[in-house]
Amino acid sequence: MLTKEDILSITRSGEGYNAEFKSRVPNKLKELSEEICAFANAAGGVLLLGIDDNNNIIGASIDNTKLSAIQNSLNEINPHLPTELYKVEVDGKDVWVIEVNSGKQKPYALSGAIYVRQGPNSQKLTTVEQMRDFFQQSDRIYFDEAPCAEFDLREDIDHEWFEEFRIEAKLSKVRIELVEQVGSGISRMRDAMIRAELPEPDFKTEGMFTIIFKRSKSSGKSSGKSSGTDWEEIKNMLQKKSQRKLSKNSLKILEMVFHSSEVTIPEMAKKLKITERAIEKNIQKLKENQLLEREESNRAGYWRLLIDLES
């Protein structure tokens, strides 16, 4: 079960491959079951009820009738999927957790449809054949990795041979026993990088799971500022140029770009404590307002404030 600290860490990291947020129980309970089905067909995950679009903990109230209806909806996933549904109090507010591990009997289907996790979103497939093709093309199903339900670890393993293998592979007994909860490692890595004042790592979830760590470095790219120009002066120029009133978040985004042209969208979201989608919407408005642009590619580019320092 997740603790209060686990939930705070996950909400700071935002939605992703292993986490989905809902501000309340949706009118169509099938929406919850679709997300859980997708997690089971991927690497598992958690769905948190009581978290708004800006990653704020607002709490959710679920009575026994609604609780029973949610459980009935989850039971419609086929084959049967064990899930945990429970409540955790965080800062005086109730956050409801639906937790599921990666399923052992993939693929799982809901009302005849199959759902899989693609990055931070869930995707619907329509046939079992498509699901099997998806897993095979993603290098996630191998014949020799299929679980053997009849295997008994205590009785069927040759401990002498296993010990010989462990020594040859140079694996410590402690390392073998390290099994962490799904999703918690990603959150802890992000938190550790933030504490070290380093850029957040990138997590690639398509195909082979990959983590990219980035150095903390300064770049020669210009963000649109010049030496001797402070942020207040730049902010006044941007507000005068803007065709509409700039929101508080938009100004914060522009200020972050002013200080670092290579700031990333995840870093912006973390700083402002809102979702990456909300950041992207603000950036789109700033681009339409001709205040901000992106140079080069999104992977290796940088931001530039559109202001005329000579005028």
Rank of each mutant, 00 (worst) to 15 (best):
E197P: 09
E34S: 02
L238V: 10
A192T: 13
G16T: 04
N282Y: 10
I36A: 00
G92Y: 09
G119I: 10
V88P: 00
E145N: 14
N72W: 12
I234V: 05
Q118P: 03
N282C: 08
A196D: 06
N55L: 10
F213Q: 04
I57N: 09
G185F: 03
S23C: 03
Q284D: 11
D144W: 03
M256Q: 09
Q181S: 15
I36G: 01
D230K: 14
N18S: 12
E168G: 12
S311L: 14
S218W: 02
E200I: 04
Q130D: 11
D144I: 13
D63A: 08
Y86V: 04
R304H: 11
D308F: 02
S138I: 09
F135A: 02
S242V: 13
I62S: 01
L305H: 03
L178C: 06
L32F: 05
D139C: 01
L198Q: 05
Q136V: 09
R188P: 00
N282E: 11
W96E: 12
I157V: 14
Q137Y: 11
V257H: 03
F213A: 15
I265M: 04
M208L: 12
R195M: 01
R166L: 03
S172R: 08
T264W: 13
V182E: 14
K252D: 08
E177Y: 15
K173T: 10
L291C: 06
G16F: 03
K28T: 07
I98M: 00
F162N: 10
D139G: 02
E89Q: 13
G301T: 12
K104V: 12
E129A: 09
S242T: 05
S102E: 14
N27W: 15
I234L: 02
D139S: 03
Y302T: 08
